Computed example of a mutant assay.
Amino acid sequence: MTSVIPKSDSAATDTADAAEEATLERARAVATLLDESVRIPVVGYRVGLDPILGIVPFSGDLVAAAASLYVVYAAVAVGVPKRTTAVMLGRIGVDLAVGSIPVLGTLVDAVWKSNLRNVEAIEAHLEST
């Protein structure tokens, strides 16, 4: 017969912290892919797939918005408050709406970087808990 040793509160907290950190890292990877994955050679500015996809009228912005929802999913998974989650969804909505404007939308997508802002909101929540 084997004995079961209950986990201490500290071990459970460590496991939860590790899970939150893994979720944050995945969200950060998605945000980086969408907002800063490609370096423009001459100027050194970084853009991601979001403005590149934005070149394809409307459907490209829809694909980028759908991918952006993963960051919001990660926020919900780590317990970000509903108000902050709503703000994150609002950023994606604005990104989708403005990004749908030909040429101007692509330029705004390249500068605004809503996904990185959303990851910063997750990090701020995790630091405050």
Rank of each mutant, 00 (worst) to 15 (best):
L49T: 02
V78K: 12
P57T: 07
L62N: 09
V43R: 07
G54D: 03
F58G: 11
T84E: 07
L49Q: 06
A75M: 06
G60P: 04
Y45W: 08
T85W: 01
V42T: 09
S37Y: 00
I40P: 01
F58M: 15
A65F: 12
D50M: 02
Y70K: 15
P81R: 14
P41W: 13
G48E: 00
G48Q: 02
Y73R: 15
P57D: 04
V71H: 02
L69Y: 13
S68I: 04
T85K: 14
V78N: 11
V38S: 09
V56R: 08
A75H: 06
A64I: 10
V71G: 02
R39F: 00
V72N: 03
G79D: 05
V80M: 04
V42D: 10
I40F: 03
A66P: 01
P57S: 11
V76F: 05
A65D: 05
K82Q: 04
G54Y: 04
G48I: 02
L62I: 13
P57A: 13
V47S: 01
L69S: 15
P81H: 11
I52N: 07
A67H: 05
G79V: 05
V71F: 02
S37H: 06
R83T: 12
P57K: 13
G44H: 03
V80N: 10
L49G: 03
T84Q: 10
K82L: 03
V38Y: 08
I55P: 00
G44L: 06
R83H: 08
L69D: 11
L49W: 09
G44C: 04
P57W: 04
T84G: 01
V63T: 10
V72G: 07
L53M: 13
V42S: 13
I52V: 13
V72L: 11
P51V: 03
K82Y: 00
S68P: 07
G54W: 04
P41Q: 12
V63P: 01
P81Y: 06
P51Y: 03
R83N: 09
Y70N: 10
D35W: 01
F58Y: 12
